[in-house]
Design a binder for these strands. Structure first.
Length: 556
DNA sequence: TAGCCGGAAA
DNA sequence: ATAGGTTCCGGCTA
C-alpha cells in the first residue's frame, strides 16, 4: 500500500499519521508489539522493543502477523533488515524452556545446543545451573527458577516456563452468579488466558472490574489465595467485593495489614506490611510460608516494590496473577514483571471497553494557563529543583479551577494534585474538604462515603487518589499538579472517573498546566499512556474558559 | 486500656 | 530527583 498511515524506519521506530483514515486500524494492529514514545498532534512515534515482541509472542502472535501488520499499513517499503530483526528477536523467546524432568526435577532445555552453551558460559548464570543430563538439558536448582528467568531475559534469551505449579491447599471458591450477574466477555477471556498461560499479567482499564478477574482466577484455582494490594483501603474493597461476588464468607477472608494480622484461606496483605523491616530483617516473611498458597494475586502490579520482586523470585512454583491498568513502570522494571510474574496474558484497549459501555467515555482537556508577570519572573530566577513546584502550583491556577467547577456545577468533582500546600489553598478557596496522607482512615472513609452519597460535591485529594479508590459517582476531575511525568499516575487519575455513570454521560478530565514552563513538558509526558489508549487531549486556553461552553469549542 | 495523634523509617 | 504515602510506635487523653 503506497498511502498507508505508517512510516516504518530501520531504527525500530514507527511514525503513525493520526489524521489518516486508517490510523485507528493501524494503531490497534501495532499496539501488541510496539510502545508509544511520543504523541504530539499529527504524528505519533512508536518503538518496537524486544520485550514488546516477546509479550506479543507469549500472547500467541507470531512473527508473520507482526510483519504483516507493518507491511500492510506502511507507506513506504519496510526496511528488510528490520523485518529480519523482528523475526529473529521473536524466535529468541522460548528457544530455552524450563521443564520439569521426571528424573532430575527442574531443568533448562534447548534443542539449540549453541544457545544452551552460550548461557551456561555466562558468569552470572552458571552458578544457578547444575550438571548436564543429555545433550540438550541442564539441571536447575528449583530455588533459582525466578532469578534464572530474570537473567535469561537480561541476556536476551527469555525462557518459556513449562515447569508447572503446585496445586496448593485446596479451598472451595465459587463465583456467586445467583445474584443475577455474570462475567463480562473480557473478564472471562482474561481469566481464561491467565489460566491457560499459567502465570502472568492482565491489563484492564480502571473501573472495568479487575477484582472480578481475580475472583474468576480464584474460582479456577480452587485453592487458598494470597492477595497483595497497595493499601488497607483497597484491601477492604477487595474483601467487600469477594464477599459480594463469590461463595467466600467474611470468616474465610483475612486482612494482613498495619492494623490486623489475620491469616485465613484467602488473605489480603498490603505491600507495605510485608516489605516492613526491623533491623534489616523482613518481619513478615512468615506470611508466605504460613500456608500452602495455590494462587498469589498482585494488585496494581505496576507499583510492585523491589523487595516483593525478590520474594516473588522464590514463589515461582505458585501460580501468579498480576493485575494493572498501566503495565508501564516509571523505573524500567517491566522486564522483571515479565520474568517473575509472567508475560502479559490479556489486555483490552480502553476504548474497546468504552465502546462496550463498561467504562464511561471521557473528554480530556489540557487547560493552558498564562502565569502573571510576577509568577513568570519568580519561575525564571528559581533554582532548578524548585522550578517544577513553582510553576505547577502557581496561584493563577486557582481562578481557572473555579471557572471549570462553575462549568460543571452540580457534578461530583475531584481536584487532584501533588503538593499539599496547593491542595490546602484550593480546599480553602473552594470550601471543599482535603484528603491527604495524614487524613486518618476513618475520616477518609466518611468523606468518601459522603461524596458517594452526594452530600459533598467537591473533594480535594492528594496522591492518595493515585491508588484504586472506588468513587463511582465522580464525573469531573481537575488535575492541578503531578509527580514528575508519571504516565501511570495520569492514567490512575483519569481512572477515578471511569465507572459508568447511571445516565451514561461522559466524564470530564482537565489537566491545568502553566504555559511556557516545565509544567507543560511534564504534562505532555504524563499524557503519553492515555494517548496510546486513544484519548485525544484538547488543549484549551484558560482565557477561553470564560467564553463559550467547552463542548462548543471547535476541534482543530 | 482503647483510641487518637505526631514523628520516624525506608 | 522530589514530595508524598504508608506503616509502626510511643506518648497523650479520657
Amino acid at each position: 500500500m503506497s498511502d498507508g498511515p505508517l512510516i516504518v524506519q530501520s531504527d525500530k521506530t514507527l511514525l503513525l499519521e493520526i489524521d489518516h483514515e486508517l490510523s485507528q486500524a493501524a494503531r490497534s494492529a501495532i499496539a501488541p508489539f510496539a510502545e508509544l514514545e511520543r504523541a504530539p498532534e499529527h504524528v505519533h512515534t512508536y518503538r518496537i522493543t524486544p520485550l514488546a515482541l516477546w509479550n506479543a509472542r507469549a500472547a500467541g502472535h507470531d512473527a508473520e502477523q507482526v510483519v504483516d501488520a507493518l507491511v500492510s499499513f506502511s507507506r513506504y517499503p519496510v526496511p528488510q533488515p528490520l523485518l529480519v530483526d523482528i523475526v529473529d528477536t521473536m524466535a529468541r523467546y522460548g528457544r530455552l524452556q524450563l521443564v520439569k524432568n521426571p528424573a532430575h526435577g527442574l531443568t533448562l532445555v534447548s534443542l539449540d545446543r549453541a544457545v544452551l552453551t552460550e548461557v551456561m558460559r555466562n558468569k552470572k548464570i552458571a552458578p544457578m545451573l547444575g550438571a548436564m543430563v543429555g545433550d540438550d538439558t541442564v539441571i536447575v536448582h528449583p530455588s533459582e527458577r525466578g532469578r534464572l528467568k530474570q537473567m535469561l531475559l537480561k541476556v536476551g534469551w527469555p525462557a518459556e516456563d513449562f515447569a508447572g505449579y503446585v496445586d496448593g491447599e485446596a479451598h472451595e471458591i465459587r463465583l456467586d452468579t445467583a445474584a443475577g450477574w455474570h462475567l463480562r466477555d473480557y473478564q472471562q477471556m482474561a481469566a481464561d488466558s491467565f489460566w491457560d498461560g499459567g502465570s502472568g499479567v492482565v491489563v484492564l482499564p480502571c473501573g472495568s472490574g479487575k477484582t472480578i478477574v481475580g475472583a474468576a482466577a480464584m474460582a479456577r484455582a480452587q485453592a487458598t489465595t494470597l492477595i497483595l494490594v497497595t493499601n488497607t483501603v483497597s484491601g477492604r474493597q477487595w474483601k467487600r467485593e469477594l464477599i459480594a461476588r463469590t461463595s467466600l464468607t467474611e470468616e474465610e477472608i483475612g486482612e494482613y495489614s498495619g492494623e490486623k494480622k489475620e491469616i485465613r484461606p484467602v488473605t489480603i496483605a498490603t505491600y507495605q506490611v510485608i516489605t516492613r523491616r526491623t533491623k534489616g530483617e523482613y518481619k513478615h516473611l512468615e506470611l508466605f510460608d504460613s500456608r500452602d498458597w495455590g494462587l498469589v494475586i498482585y494488585d496494581e502490579v505496576h507499583l510492585l516494590p523491589a523487595p516483593v520482586f525478590r520474594m516473588t523470585a522464590d514463589l515461582q512454583s505458585r501460580r501468579r496473577l498480576g493485575l494493572t491498568a498501566t503495565l508501564v513502570r516509571e523505573d524500567g522494571r517491566e522486564g522483571d514483571v515479565f520474568s517473575l510474574i509472567g508475560p502479559k496474558r490479556y489486555d483490552a484497549p480502553w476504548k474497546d471497553i468504552e465502546a462496550q459501555g463498561w467504562i464511561a467515555p471521557a473528554d480530556c482537556v489540557e487547560v493552558r494557563v498564562t502565569l502573571t508577570e510576577a509568577e513568570r519572573m519568580a519561575y525564571a530566577v528559581a533554582e532548578p529543583e524548585e522550578r517544577y513546584k513553582l510553576c505547577s502550583t502557581a496561584r493563577t491556577k486557582v481562578a481557572v479551577v473555579k471557572s471549570i467547577l462553575a462549568r460543571h456545577e452540580g457534578a461530583q468533582t475531584l481536584i487532584i494534585g501533588a503538593y499539599l500546600d496547593q491542595l490546602e489553598e484550593l480546599g480553602a478557596e473552594l470550601d471543599a474538604p482535603v484528603i491527604q496522607g495524614s487524613t486518618r482512615n476513618k475520616e477518609r472513609e466518611s468523606l468518601f462515603d459522603a461524596f458517594r452519597r452526594g452530600e459533598i460535591s467537591t473533594l480535594v485529594v492528594s496522591k492518595v487518589a493515585n491508588f484504586s479508590i472506588d468513587l463511582p459517582e465522580a464525573s469531573v476531575a481537575v488535575q492541578v499538579s503531578g509527580t514528575f511525568g508519571s504516565r501511570q499516575e495520569e492514567a490512575q487519575r483519569l481512572g477515578r472517573l471511569l465507572r459508568p455513570k447511571k445516565d451514561r454521560t461522559q466524564a470530564h478530565f482537565y489537566s491545568v498546566v502553566s504555559r511556557d514552563t516545565l509544567d507543560t513538558e511534564y504534562a505532555a509526558h504524563r499524557q503519553r499512556f492515555l494517548a496510546e489508549q486513544g484519548y485525544a487531549y484538547r488543549i484549551v486556553d484558560a482565557d477561553d474558559l470564560l467564553g463559550p461552553a467547552l463542548g462548543d469549542v471547535a476541534q482543530p
